[in-house]
Simulated assay, not measured.
Amino acid sequence: MNRKIILLVDDDYDDAEFFRWAMEGTEETFSVKFVDSGDAALHLLSELDSLPDLIILDAGMPKMNGWELLKHIKLDLRFANVPIIMMATSARIQGIEQADSLGAQAYIVKPSDFYQLKSIMEQLCVGIQTNLDATLETLRSTLPESIYTFNHIQ
């Protein structure tokens, strides 16, 4: 069975550890690739044999931030149908609008509660295997102050 690939790009070591813990137990179904910068993400994407099934980008990274990385990825036609979710620590309207205008599928405010993060990641994993759009809409209705979805034709 081919494992689904999730690429997480986040420069914050603690946040990356939370994601690792949240994904524990999914190793048979998911291969989670962690990189800590936009440059490392572009390098990894150029070397992967298979496209990721989901890319999660931290908005606030040094050098190349998540917005710049999103632009680079969206310019590459190989990744046109790969869903990308932006994550940030705040629900600033400018960030949400920028994620939408750059083609992200959703914007998620990073939960400070580990169990909420684990629940979100579990639901995203189900969505990757079934219907990510429907899963994101369910998450949005459950956590309207933390999950913002956009209607982009994939």
Results as ranks from 00 to 15, higher is better:
Pro83Asp: 00
Ile73His: 03
Asp11Met: 03
Gly38Met: 07
Thr29Tyr: 12
Thr135Leu: 06
Phe114Pro: 05
Asp133Tyr: 12
Ala106Asp: 00
Glu17Phe: 06
Tyr148Arg: 15
Leu124Met: 10
Glu47Trp: 11
Ser46Glu: 12
His43Glu: 14
Ala99Cys: 02
Asp100Ser: 12
Asp100Ile: 08
Asp53Ala: 02
Asp39Pro: 09
Arg140Gln: 15
Ile120Lys: 05
Thr130His: 07
Thr29Glu: 10
Asp53Trp: 01
Thr149Trp: 00
Leu42Trp: 06
Asp11Glu: 05
Lys74Ser: 03
Ser112Leu: 15
Tyr148Cys: 10
Gln129Cys: 08
Gln94Cys: 08
Leu143Gly: 13
Met87Trp: 02
Ile5Thr: 00
Leu102Ser: 09
Lys110Phe: 05
Pro111Asp: 04
Tyr107Cys: 02
Trp21Arg: 14
Lys110Val: 15
Leu143Arg: 06
Glu97Leu: 07
Leu70Gln: 00
Ser112Lys: 10
Met86Gln: 01
Lys4Leu: 03
Glu28Ala: 12
Lys63Ala: 13
Ala22Lys: 09
Gly38Trp: 05
Leu70Met: 01
Lys118Asp: 03
Phe34Leu: 06
Asp58Leu: 00
Pro83Leu: 01
Thr135Gly: 00
Gly38Ser: 10
Asp39Asn: 11
Ser90Gln: 05
Leu45Gly: 11
Ser119Met: 13
Thr149Met: 09
Ser119Gln: 13
Met64Ser: 01
Ser90Trp: 09
Gln154Pro: 15
Ser146Ile: 06
Tyr148Trp: 15
Ala41Lys: 07
Lys63Met: 10
Leu48Gln: 02
Thr29Ala: 09
Gly103Glu: 05
Val126Ile: 13
Lys118Ile: 10
Asp100Lys: 03
Ser37Ile: 01
Ile6Pro: 04
Asp10Glu: 00
Trp21Ile: 15
Leu139Ser: 12
Ala41Ile: 10
Leu139Met: 12
Lys63Gln: 15
Thr29His: 11
Glu137Gly: 10
Val9Cys: 09
Tyr148Asn: 00
Tyr115Arg: 14
Tyr13Gly: 05
